[in-house]
Simulated assay, not measured.
Amino acid sequence: MNHCKKRFPQAQQHKSARRALRLTALTATLGAFPIAAFAADLETDDAVMVPPQQFDTSRYGDFRDKLHDWKVTIGAGAIYMPEYEGSDKFDVNPLPIFSAVFGDRVSVDITGVTVDLYERDGFRVGVKGGYELGRKEDDSDYLRGLGDIDAGGVIGGIVSYERGPFEVYGTLDKTIGGSDGLTGTLGAKASYKYERFIFAADASGTWADDKHMESYFGITSAQSASSGLAQYDAKAGVKRVDVKGSITYMMTENWLVTGAAGAGFLLGDAKDSPIVKDDVQPFAMLGVAYRF
């Protein structure tokens, strides 16, 4: 059975772009993409050398040293994913790939910016800023009558400890606007390099507060009347557990192909919500990127 629905081309384009960005944020946040995680590891020692006499460093400063500190990866791919969190219907959407690392402290990807405040002996504490794109009721027929969840900004923190190929981490994110929710994630991941391959695996659990749960899984009396779904009160708790793996292959020093697959398992009040048609949420992605 074909799960992808037919819609007017322009509306479908807007929907696909919106969902692609939203799932990019979701999968990147949950560690599905190897790109951001391994940007520093993919750095090459080769640099394009320009004769110094072409630059007046006393006037402009030696900005070449600053540019060399940036490690940038950019590309595109496709992702197979549910229409929304809890759906049993899937779409294939285009997926932008982008990450940039500056020095040892600042990293940027399509989800936002992370700044490391403290790092010592594998222990790291950082802050981050980004966004939550919310949800549109026209993302799926199942959501009709539930209204939109507005976009909002996200501020948060991250604590992690890395030893060899293993890392444990915890994040706490507050959405300002939109759902106004608070979410926390605890997880562990491992990576391994073999010749031109980078393998990674990640497992995590996500907790959400009342505001987040009510926004994405609850149904008010007004929404019940509009949608025909039963009224439902979603409380705070662990909403999902995620497992995933990824493989990156370095075709050349600059070109790479990356793939990831995994599944999220909705739990508690999220799993029991009337809008959830399937509590197992698989995804798969494939992309090609170039690193500078």
Rank of each mutant, 00 (worst) to 15 (best):
G187D: 05
S204Y: 08
E214W: 04
M250W: 11
Y60Q: 11
E83F: 00
A284T: 06
V154A: 02
F197W: 10
N254H: 14
E195C: 01
W70E: 03
D116A: 08
T27G: 08
E214K: 15
V159A: 13
G218L: 02
N254P: 04
Y161K: 10
A76D: 00
A190Q: 03
T29Q: 06
P82F: 00
H68A: 09
K211E: 08
G77M: 11
D148T: 02
D109A: 05
D272F: 02
L26D: 13
T252A: 11
S215R: 06
E162L: 13
L182M: 01
V127W: 11
K6A: 09
H68R: 11
L229T: 13
A36R: 06
E214P: 11
V241T: 07
D65P: 07
L95G: 02
K136E: 15
F283L: 06
V280L: 00
E195H: 02
Y169K: 11
K89E: 08
T185F: 03
F8I: 07
L143P: 12
D56G: 08
A190S: 09
Y169R: 12
N93K: 04
K136T: 14
G157Y: 14
L23G: 07
R18S: 01
V257M: 04
R22L: 04
T29D: 04
R124A: 12
L21H: 05
A234E: 15
F265T: 03
Y84M: 05
F33E: 06
A284I: 11
S204M: 05
S227A: 13
D210S: 11
G129M: 15
V92Q: 01
P34C: 08
S99D: 04
V113E: 05
E85S: 09
D141R: 15
G147W: 14
R240F: 06
T111W: 02
P274Y: 10
R120N: 05
I275Y: 00
I275C: 01
A37R: 13
T111N: 10
E214Q: 15
D45P: 09
S191P: 06
D202H: 01
I275H: 03
P94G: 01
M250R: 12
A289H: 05
D56H: 11
Q53V: 08
V159I: 14
G181E: 07
T220S: 12
P51N: 09
G268E: 13
G237S: 14
Y169F: 15
E119S: 13
G177W: 11
A100C: 00
F63M: 01
F197H: 04
K66S: 03
I219S: 10
I198V: 15
S179K: 14
R64C: 02
M213K: 14
Y142V: 09
Y131S: 07
E119L: 14
F38V: 03
A261E: 00
V127M: 04
V243P: 08
N2E: 14
T248G: 14
Q12T: 07
S227L: 04
D109E: 07
F199Y: 12
I97N: 04
I176M: 06
E137C: 14
G187H: 02
W255P: 00
S58N: 01
F63Y: 13
D116V: 03
M49H: 09
G184V: 10
G164C: 02
G103W: 06
V238G: 14
D45Y: 05
D69N: 09
A236R: 05
G134N: 07
Y169L: 15
D121I: 01
G187N: 06
